[in-house]
Measured scan of single mutants.
Amino acid sequence: IDAAQIVDEALEQGITLFVVNNRLQYETSRDSIPTELLNKWKQHKQELIDFLNQLD
């Protein structure tokens, strides 16, 4: 699994991931984030931050 897949998966569930001051953040209108997704974010945090920083 790679960062792009995780970002896409989040988007499919209505969650936008982004980076502020090198910290992973998210925006969503959902009430809660699925635990499975949160765990993936934690496991791949640095990859996600690097990936999202490249997009900007």
Results as ranks from 00 to 15, higher is better:
Phe51Cys: 02
Arg23Pro: 01
Leu52Arg: 00
Phe51Lys: 01
Leu52Ile: 07
Ile49His: 02
Gln25Arg: 13
Glu27Pro: 02
Asp2Gln: 12
Leu52Cys: 02
Ile1Pro: 08
Glu12Lys: 14
Tyr26Gln: 02
Ala10Ile: 02
Leu38Arg: 06
Gln25Asp: 06
Val19Asp: 01
Leu48Gly: 00
Arg23Ala: 14
Asn53Ile: 13
Val19Cys: 05
Val19Glu: 02
Ile6Arg: 01
Gln25Ser: 10
Leu17Thr: 00
Asp56Ile: 11
Leu55Ile: 13
Asn53Thr: 14
Asn39Asp: 12
Asp2His: 11
Ile1His: 09
Gln13Asn: 13
Asp31Trp: 04
Gly14Phe: 04
Leu48Gln: 00
Gln46Lys: 11
Ala3His: 03
His44Cys: 06
Gln54Gly: 13
Leu37Thr: 04
Asn39Met: 14
Lys42Asn: 13
Arg23Ile: 15
Ile49Thr: 04
Asp2Glu: 09
Leu17Ile: 07
Asn39Ala: 14
Asp56Val: 12
Leu38Ser: 06
Phe51Val: 02
Gln54Asp: 09
Val20Thr: 08
Gln54Phe: 10
Gly14Lys: 04
Thr28Glu: 02
Thr16Glu: 06
Gly14Pro: 01
Thr16Leu: 14
Ile33Gln: 01
Asp2Asn: 14
Lys45Gly: 09
Gln5Ala: 14
Ala3Trp: 07
Asp50Ile: 11
Leu17Lys: 00
Ile6Asp: 02
Asn53Val: 11
Glu12Met: 13
Ala10Asn: 01
Val20His: 12
Ile6Gly: 01
Gln13Met: 15
Asn53Ala: 09
Ile33Trp: 03
Gln5Ser: 13
Glu27Phe: 15
Glu9His: 05
Asp56Cys: 11
Ala10Gln: 00
Glu36Lys: 07
Ala3Ser: 05
Leu52Ala: 00
Asp50Pro: 03
Leu11Gly: 05
Leu11Ser: 08
Leu11Val: 06
Lys40His: 05
Leu38Met: 10
Asn53Cys: 09
Pro34Lys: 04
Gln5Trp: 11
Thr28Ile: 03
Thr28Ser: 09
Lys42Val: 10
Ala4Leu: 06
Ile33Phe: 04
Asp56Arg: 10
Arg23Asp: 15
Asp8Leu: 15
Asn21Asp: 13
Val19Tyr: 04
Thr16Gly: 04
Asn22Leu: 05
Leu55Met: 12
His44Gly: 03
Ile15Gly: 01
Leu37His: 02
Asn39Trp: 11
Ile33Asp: 02
Asn21Pro: 00
Arg30Gly: 06
Gln46Met: 08
Ala4Met: 09
Asp2Gly: 10
Ser32Trp: 13
Ala4Glu: 07
Leu17Tyr: 01
Tyr26Trp: 15
Glu27Leu: 14
Ala4Thr: 04
Asn22Asp: 08
Glu9Tyr: 06
Asn53Gln: 11
Phe51Ser: 01
Phe18Val: 10
Thr16Cys: 15
Gln13Asp: 03
Leu24Val: 04
Arg23Thr: 15
Ile33Glu: 02
Gln43Ile: 12
Glu36Thr: 09
Ser29Cys: 12
Leu11Arg: 14
Glu36Ile: 08
Ala4Ser: 10
Val20Ala: 09
Ile6Val: 06
Gln25Gly: 10
Glu36Tyr: 13
Ala3Gln: 03
Thr35Ala: 13
Gln13Arg: 09
Gln25Trp: 15
Leu48Ile: 15
Asp56Ser: 13
Arg30Glu: 05
Leu11Pro: 02
Thr35Cys: 11
Glu36Val: 09
Leu38Gln: 06
Leu48Ser: 00
Glu9Ser: 04
Leu24Lys: 00
Glu12Gln: 14
Trp41Leu: 11
Pro34Met: 03
Ala10Cys: 04
Phe18Gly: 05
Leu52Glu: 00
His44Thr: 03
Leu48Met: 03
Leu52Gly: 00
Glu47Ser: 08
Ile6Thr: 03
Ile1Leu: 10
Val20Met: 10
Phe18Ser: 10
Thr16Val: 13
Glu12Asp: 09
Val7Phe: 09
Gln43Ser: 10
Gln46Leu: 08
Leu37Phe: 07
Ile15Arg: 00
Gln13Ala: 14
Lys45Met: 15
Lys40Tyr: 07
Leu24Arg: 00
Arg30Cys: 06
Gln25Met: 15
Asp31Met: 08
Ala4Cys: 08
Leu48Lys: 00
Leu38Tyr: 08
Gln43Val: 11
Phe18Cys: 12
Ser29Ala: 11
Glu9Gly: 03
Leu24Pro: 00
Asp50Asn: 12
Arg23Gln: 15
Glu12Phe: 08
Leu52Gln: 00
Gln46Arg: 10
Lys42Pro: 01
Asp31Gly: 10
Ser32His: 11
Glu36Cys: 06
Leu38Asp: 02
Gln13Phe: 14
Phe18Glu: 04
Leu52Asp: 00
Asp8Trp: 15
Glu12Asn: 12
Asp50Gln: 10
Ile33Thr: 03
Ile33Leu: 06
Leu24Trp: 02
Lys45Glu: 15
Val19Leu: 07
Tyr26Asn: 01
His44Phe: 14
